[in-house]
Design a protein around this nucleic acid. Structure first.
Length: 350
DNA sequence: CATGCGTGGGC
DNA sequence: TGCCCAAGCAT
């Protein structure tokens, strides 16, 4: 049972009115009142890019993808390597592999038309509970309980939920469900997320501008920023490794395609040693005149990495995928782009 | 249900 | 600087 009994209709009407006046203009979004007016392909593409990703980071990628592959059929027909390279730098690369798998499923099994129900959307690769609900609500204006991190935060504050996440998730989801109706469901979902993103922010919430402050138990408590409570996180281990920057006589760099599963799966990368918890000497891929180019630091979700960089000139070896340096850099995940920059820097002084 | 999976920005 | 955080999903 929630600690208070909210006036659902009043909260809904005030938040929708706030959204009508304050909705963010985003590249993939229809103005308030026009939910359902956007191509479901663009809604889906934006939602996948926005998973655990800020709007500022996702926006240029969205514009590039939407221009380069204007329809789901175009994306489905694109070569894997081009899509992975276009995703480079956005992170969580399983999303890009699932994006392609989903586009091909829609093109192949659904006649190029996105399904319009939550249940059938949920069956698509890379589409989970949040994304299925978001596409159903935003693209098709169907009632759906759209619960992302913003909505969890708004609910946790509105009802001053004292249970920490992730344990509180089922309760927060039930609380959010009480507000879902068939009136403007797409705008409701976006209104809640916009409120969470711009007013009911994680740090320093702007309660003075919040249309729901009068109903908010978190605001009444005097410390709304305390919600949602969080379980303590485990410490991040550090790993060490070596990346080898191998350059041929024409200035091309040796790359390798990484296996589909696991860290940076499916992406191009520099040849590397194992990344283990102890720093130790690593045997280079072939004997030669290796130069130490220093190290780069990079922090992944669950570990920090010290990556030492060593460089060598080499004859063109068939075992690698050789790319001009600029092309290589643009196709690489950030950790390898940093290592490549480090490895090529000494060449400036030769 | 816990874990693995990126990155850049803010303080 | 070192943490925390941001429109989650798959296994």
């Amino acid at each position: 049972m929630p600690p208070v009994s909210p006036d659902v209709a009043s909260i809904r009407s005030r938040l929708l009115a706030w959204y009508d006046a304050h909705a963010r203009a985003l590249a993939w979004r229809a103005p308030p009142g026009e939910a359902g007016g956007i191509d479901p392909y663009r809604v889906w593409l934006s939602e996948v890019m926005l998973q655990q990703t800020t709007t500022a980071h996702a926006t240029p990628y969205f514009l590039n993808f939407a221009a380069r592959w204007p329809t789901v059929r175009d994306l489905a027909a694109a070569p894997d390597a081009e899509v992975m390279a276009a995703w480079a730098g956005l992170g969580y690369y399983a999303r890009a592999r699932n994006l392609l798998a989903c586009a091909r499923a829609v093109a192949g099994d659904h006649g190029g038309v996105f399904p319009d129900t939550e249940a059938r959307l949920l069956a698509l690769p890379g589409v989970g509970a949040y994304t299925a609900a978001a596409v159903a609500a935003i693209a098709f204006d169907r009632p759906a309980n759209v619960v992302d991190g913003n909505v969890e935060r708004v609910m946790a504050r509105l009802f001053a939920v004292e249970t920490p996440v992730p344990a509180a998730r089922p309760e927060l989801r039930r609380l959010a469900a009480r507000f879902v109706t068939d009136h403007r469901p797409g705008d409701w979902a976006q209104a809640l997320m916009d409120l969470g993103a711009t007013v009911c922010r994680s740090r320093s919430p702007l309660c003075g501008q919040c249309p729901l402050a009068a109903d908010c138990a978190g605001f009444a408590s005097g410390a709304p920023e305390r919600f949602p409570l969080k379980a303590k996180k485990a410490d991040k281990p550090r790993r060490h490794g070596v990346a080898w920057v191998i350059v041929d006589a024409r200035g091309r760099v040796a790359l390798e395609r990484r296996p589909d599963k696991g860290l940076l799966g499916g992406m191009l990368g520099l040849p590397t040693s194992d990344w283990s918890t102890v720093p130790e000497a690593r045997t280079p891929p072939f004997p030669g005149d290796w130069r130490d180019a220093g190290a780069v630091e990079h922090v992944f979700t669950h570990f920090a990495l010290t990556l030492h960089v060593r460089t060598a000139q080499a004859a063109h070896l068939g075992a690698y995928d050789w790319r001009p340096a600029a092309e290589a850099r643009s196709a690489l995940p950030t950790v390898f782009a940093k290592a490549l920059d480090r490895g090529l820097a000494p060449a400036l002084f030769l």
